[in-house]
């Protein structure tokens, strides 16, 4: 069974929601990433979105933009990221998807990527700027190597398109909770719950919500509705503020634990 499916099945049994932690691979340096993922897992993260840094991240706010710049300066490439996943698999079975802009994956080659990512131990991928209309060749390779493709759905997505996006996804569907780029916000957008309800009517796949979510109270606000909550910029801000700190991993673990505590469902 794909680790993503197993994870959502387990979460259901445990009456808790999934903490999905995004981190930019290679920030602060490629040799730290596995350690940080293990720390997130120790803190309670259920699924990792491992971000491929890109030179022109048009959907990202300043925190993840800067994380990407640091990672690129440190020499991070798709091939090195797959090595990180291989190394991670020596000690962890946490579900993991590769999260990327299209061009680095296009350049690596869809077939080569799907084959190498599956062999390395990834469970799926999400390509932010690959629209479903253009995704045929990608989906073919993902299926061939039993990787889960995940698509984004937004507040502007009409119901018939939402159906196509969820049918093209496997493992879960990622709902973008608000307009705008990634980055921490004070409040959960009103759109978020409405979007979850809209998606429930169309698909039985688990639903993850992300964008702008960073605090335990955001987790508590969404736990009654979502199957998983994605947090990215808050983790990358911890990295940014602790680039040289010896206890960076501990801080990542502590933030994951604080967020995860907000995701228990009390019934």
């Amino acid at each position: 069974m794909n680790r993503i499916d197993a994870t959502f099945a387990r979460l259901k049994q445990q009456q808790t929601r999934g903490l999905i932690a995004y981190i930019t691979a290679g920030d602060p340096s490629p040799d730290r990433t596995v350690e940080l993922i293990l720390a997130l897992e120790a803190g309670g993260a259920d699924l990792i979105e491992l971000g491929v840094p890109f030179s022109d991240p048009i959907a990202d706010g300043p925190v993840i933009q800067k994380a990407g710049e640091r990672a690129l300066r440190a020499g991070t490439t798709v091939a090195k990221i797959l090595d990180m996943i291989r190394e991670l698999r020596r000690s962890s079975e946490i579900a993991l998807i590769v999260f990327s802009y299209l061009n680095p994956i296009l350049r690596y080659g869809f077939e080569r990527f799907a084959k190498d990512a599956a062999q390395a131990g990834a469970d799926g991928a999400l390509l932010t700027d690959l629209n479903v209309e253009e995704a045929g060749p990608y989906l073919e390779q993902m299926r061939k190597y039993s990787l889960h493709p995940v698509f984004l759905v937004s507040q502007t997505t009409p119901p018939d398109r939402l159906r196509v996006l969820s049918q093209s996804s496997a493992g879960f569907v990622y709902l973008v909770s608000r307009a705008g780029v990634t980055g921490e916000r004070d409040r959960v957008s009103d759109q978020a719950v409405r979007l979850i309800e809209k998606a429930r009517r169309v698909t039985d796949l688990p639903l993850a919500v992300g964008f702008g979510l960073s605090r335990p109270e955001h987790m508590r606000a969404l736990a009654p509705y979502a199957d998983g909550v994605v947090v990215g910029s808050a983790f990358m801000r911890v990295v940014e503020q602790n680039l040289q700190a010896p206890d960076l991993a501990d801080k990542m673990r502590d933030l994951a634990a604080a967020l995860k505590a907000g995701l228990k469902v009390s019934e």
């Binding site: 048009i58 959907a59 299209l102 932010t128 700027d129 690959l130 629209n131 209309e133 253009e134 698509f151 984004l152 759905v153 937004s154 507040q155 502007t156 997505t157 009409p158 398109r161 996006l165 973008v176 307009a179």
Partner: peptide
């Protein structure tokens, strides 16, 4: 209809921009 000139063109954007 999808904006292609042969293999080129098309639309590769964050999902939120598809409707606009």
């Amino acid at each position: 209809a999808l904006g292609h000139f042969g293999p080129y063109g098309g639309r590769y954007v964050p999902e939120i921009l598809v409707a606009p």
